[in-house]
Design a protein around this nucleic acid. Structure first.
Lengths: 132, 132
DNA sequence: AATTTTTTGTTATAATATAACAATGTGTAA
DNA sequence: TTACACATTGTTATATTATAACAAAAAATT
């Protein structure tokens, strides 16, 4: 069997839900919402999430243990991700800034280690929350 | 009571352990190792960890759910952190690069949101693992 | 069709983290 | 210096997040 090029049923169900949401979803909230579609166990959700993250359709917000759909249609793999996170309303936005990604992709520190991937999370108050 | 300026007994016990370790420690591994010192419950460890993170003595490696001592003695608060993580041996190193931190502290994206904090995790293979 | 591999379904359990509340300790101020 | 306020502790219970193990079904390959 060659490498999977399409989404399986479970992956599609989970992706549809995550894409409908404007904000990151927790795994068990996803589980609850897809139970009517037949996904009954955590593993079914986690397996779909794992694959979707691997192929870059969704990203995991590590500091929140939550999953958000990729905003960049050209993204094929989650190897350079940046997000802004509002510490008040928890709104999360993917940052798509070519200068930033170029800077980080080329970053080398003194250790001589070459990085193949990064994840950056910015925290602060979003415009709405700042003006409250 | 004024804001705590020193470490409490539990915080000191947890910090000592984390500082002795060259690599990030998991909360329950910390718990196991401090049980002889009298910390018997997860909450005692998590509370100490929370405070130590807050005051910048340790950092949480979000993608690993693990805690590492701060390498920068001048660090008073965990508001600008960067790490390199080897995906093979799991070695984690704090990155202390003033150009990087300056760049990220000054970064503004199109949303107009002002960031007060960031956490950056680089992934790859460390020198040792690359040469295997 | 036989083989191989991926995906699925399922049960159980591991690992990570917090809620709630009573008790104790410590700094501040009357 | 004692009463107040509040931070910290100890404890039990439970919530949340995630994976192990294995059998069965589905899809691609030969």
């Amino acid at each position: 069997m060659q490498k999977q090029t399409f989404l399986t049923k479970n992956q599609q169900i989970v992706l549809n839900l995550v894409e409908k949401s404007s904000q990151p979803l927790k795994a068990y909230s996803i589980l609850f919402n897809v139970q009517k579609k037949g996904l009954k166990a955590p593993l079914q959700v986690y397996r779909a999430l794992d694959k979707l993250v691997e192929i870059g359709k969704i990203h995991k917000i590590e500091s929140r243990n939550a999953f958000i759909a990729c905003q960049d249609s050209s993204c094929q793999i989650s190897k350079a991700t940046a997000f802004s996170i509002c510490e008040s309303c928890e709104k999360v936005t993917e940052i798509n800034n070519s200068k930033l990604s170029k800077y980080l992709n080329n970053f080398k520190d003194s250790s001589g280690m070459k990085y193949s991937k990064y994840n950056l999370e910015f925290f602060g108050l979003c415009k709405k929350c700042k003006n409250k």
